[in-house]
Simulated scan of single mutants.
Amino acid sequence: MDLLLVALGFICMIVGVFGSFLPVLPGLSSCWVGLLLLYLTKAVENNYWLLGITFVLMVVITILDYVIPSRGTKKFGGSSYGVWGTNIGLVIGILAPIPFGVIIGPFLGALIGELLYDSQNHKRALKAATGSLLGFLASSFINFMFCIIYLGIFLSTIWKYRNILF
């Protein structure tokens, strides 16, 4: 049973790493489930502090995944129309069956929102949309880095308990 939990945990880790930059797959939450599965084995002693801290970090970063692109829009001079456009574009981009929809959606949403706010200032609209794109890329990078950290914790724990697990 322990080997099955370790194998499922490793699959969750791989899915999580890929999901950190492929929005179709769950990212950091999948990595956390992988850690949880590892700690559910009888061979690995429970570490509630590690699981609790990684859970809180996962929740905070998941929330930030939705906040950072809109903050990027605002930082680059976008109005509330651009911020709303970014958020609406993100939802549409996630649901739309187009490649890179999660990147294109917030960008186009911010651009359209800013053009609705001021249809004469195309340069400002493009700048706000670029802020949205940079916010998304920053968010993806943070997500990816934490997935790699969770994978490192997973692998080091397996290595520590390798004699008992295998």
Results as ranks from 00 to 15, higher is better:
Phe154Lys: 11
Leu108Ser: 11
Pro99Ala: 07
Gly113Arg: 10
Cys12Ile: 05
Ala96Pro: 02
Ser70Tyr: 07
Val6Glu: 01
Leu37Gln: 08
Ile164Asn: 11
Tyr48Leu: 10
Met13Gly: 10
Gly72Val: 01
Ser119Trp: 11
Lys127Glu: 15
Ser79Lys: 03
Gly89Asp: 07
Leu4Asn: 00
Leu134Asp: 00
Gly109Lys: 06
Thr86Gly: 07
Ala43Met: 14
Pro106Val: 03
Ala128Pro: 15
Lys42Tyr: 13
Ser29Pro: 09
Tyr117Ala: 06
Phe141Glu: 00
Arg71Asp: 00
Phe154Ala: 10
Val24Tyr: 00
Trp84Thr: 03
Cys147Tyr: 09
Met145Asn: 05
Asn46Asp: 12
Asn121Ser: 14
Asn47Cys: 03
Phe146Thr: 04
Ala43Thr: 14
Ala96Cys: 02
Gly109Ala: 11
Gly152Ser: 05
Phe18Lys: 10
Gly89Gln: 05
Ser70Cys: 14
Phe136Ile: 07
Ala7Met: 13
Val17Pro: 05
Thr73Cys: 08
Phe141Cys: 13
Leu22Glu: 00
Leu8Ala: 14
Gly131Asp: 07
Ser29Cys: 02
Ala128Arg: 09
Ala129Glu: 10
Gly93Trp: 06
Ala125Ser: 15
Glu45Trp: 12
Lys42Gln: 15
Gly101Tyr: 02
Pro99Gln: 03
Ala43Tyr: 09
Leu165Asp: 06
Leu137Lys: 02
Cys147Phe: 04
Phe100Ser: 11
Phe144Asp: 03
Trp159Ser: 09
Gly16Leu: 15
Arg162Ser: 14
Pro97Ser: 07
Ile68Lys: 02
Val102Gln: 06
Leu134Ile: 01
Lys160Ile: 09
Gly34Leu: 07
Leu51Asp: 05
Val6Asn: 09
Gln120Phe: 05
Gly19Cys: 13
Trp84Tyr: 08
Gly109His: 01
Thr62Ala: 12
Ser29Phe: 04
Phe144Gln: 00
Leu116Trp: 11
Gly93Asn: 05
Tyr117Cys: 03
Asn46Leu: 13
Ile149Val: 15
Val44Ile: 01
Gly113Cys: 04
